[in-house]
């Protein structure tokens, strides 16, 4: 008996020990450091002076930064809503496909996500450039040139392109799991397709909707490459602000506060998602 206990302890240590240790050192400790930096003063040439202060947090409500926050939340929200609008019917259709085509359709959605992110963003420069495909099309139709690149619209297009697959996947697995009998029952009780969707399908797939929203909204806030490359640096988003605090302004404490607020949004949305999952579990 004693030896099996020992064997289990050794087994645990050998299998989980190295990975767990690695994650503690290179994930938990770095995040704890960022967290702790939020309450200290910045060093004159970067780094940290260990004097406690609350001013990093009060800087967040400086109108200059509030503008950036509101602007990024606006663009990230538009992106998330567009993704939802496009991904929900897509996921719904995929869930109805025959098994063989289902896999093909899902892989086709995921494939672009695993390719180089810079190249996917670059593709939109090629498309939206003043000489690009979209403008050539407009010219051929006899319409004038429109400035497409370096606009908020271009940023939203880029973000949507980058994160749309992350919306389709959780929606698909939520819709796939729905019992078709519930929909039939709703139809038999006289509800039309729209009524059935609003009172049966949508509420039951809400956990998937929220997971998708987390996966699109949070990385959209933290992206600094797309606003720079497709927005031409005219629009500064939270991601750019964080990047600049660490690589340009060398204000690590304020950068940490910004990063912490992104994590805060993430945690909040995850809680909402967990709440929705529990609710659906209770009702079903």
């Amino acid at each position: 008996m004693k030896s099996t206990v020992r064997a289990r302890v050794i087994g645990r240590l050998v299998t989980m020990g190295p990975g767990f240790g690695f994650l503690i050192v290179f994930l938990a400790v770095p995040l704890a450091l960022v967290l702790s930096y939020t309450v200290f003063r910045r060093g004159r040439f970067g780094g940290i002076v260990y004097e406690p202060t609350g001013e990093n947090f009060t800087r967040l409500i400086d109108p200059l930064y509030l503008d950036v926050v509101f602007g990024s939340v606006k663009l990230a929200t538009i992106t998330t809503l567009l993704a939802l609008l496009l991904a929900y019917p897509t996921a719904y259709m995929i869930a109805r496909l025959p098994a063989k085509w289902k896999v093909v359709a899902l892989v086709a959605v995921v494939l672009p996500f695993w390719t180089n992110f810079l190249i996917r963003t670059y593709a939109w420069i090629v498309l939206l450039n003043s000489e690009g495909l979209v403008n050539s099309g407009l010219k051929a139709l006899g319409l004038g040139k429109v400035e497409l690149l370096y606009t908020d619209g271009a940023i939203v297009a880029g973000l949507l392109y980058a994160y749309l697959p992350l919306m389709v996947l959780p929606l698909y697995s939520a819709i796939e799991r729905l019992d078709p009998q519930l929909r039939e029952a709703s139809a038999n009780l006289g509800a039309g397709p729209i009524r059935t969707f609003w009172s049966v399908t949508l509420p039951l797939s809400l956990p998937g909707v929220l997971t998708g929203c987390v996966f699109v909204f949070v990385p959209s806030l933290g992206n600094f490459v797309i606003p720079e490359l497709l927005g031409g640096g005219r629009r500064i988003m939270v991601g750019n602000l964080i990047r600049d605090q660490f690589l340009k302004a060398r204000d690590w404490p304020f950068g940490s506060v910004l990063a912490l607020s992104v994590i805060g949004v993430l945690v909040l949305l995850l809680f909402a998602q967990a709440w929705a999952t529990r609710r659906v579990g209770r009702d079903a």
Partner: peptide
Amino acid sequence: YNKSRLVDALSTMPAILPDLVLAIGLLV
């Protein structure tokens, strides 16, 4: 063996965490 949710959470966290946050964490 696992019964602790800590290890569980820690092992999935890098996939959920925005890359920028992990990047600054490691830089720091």
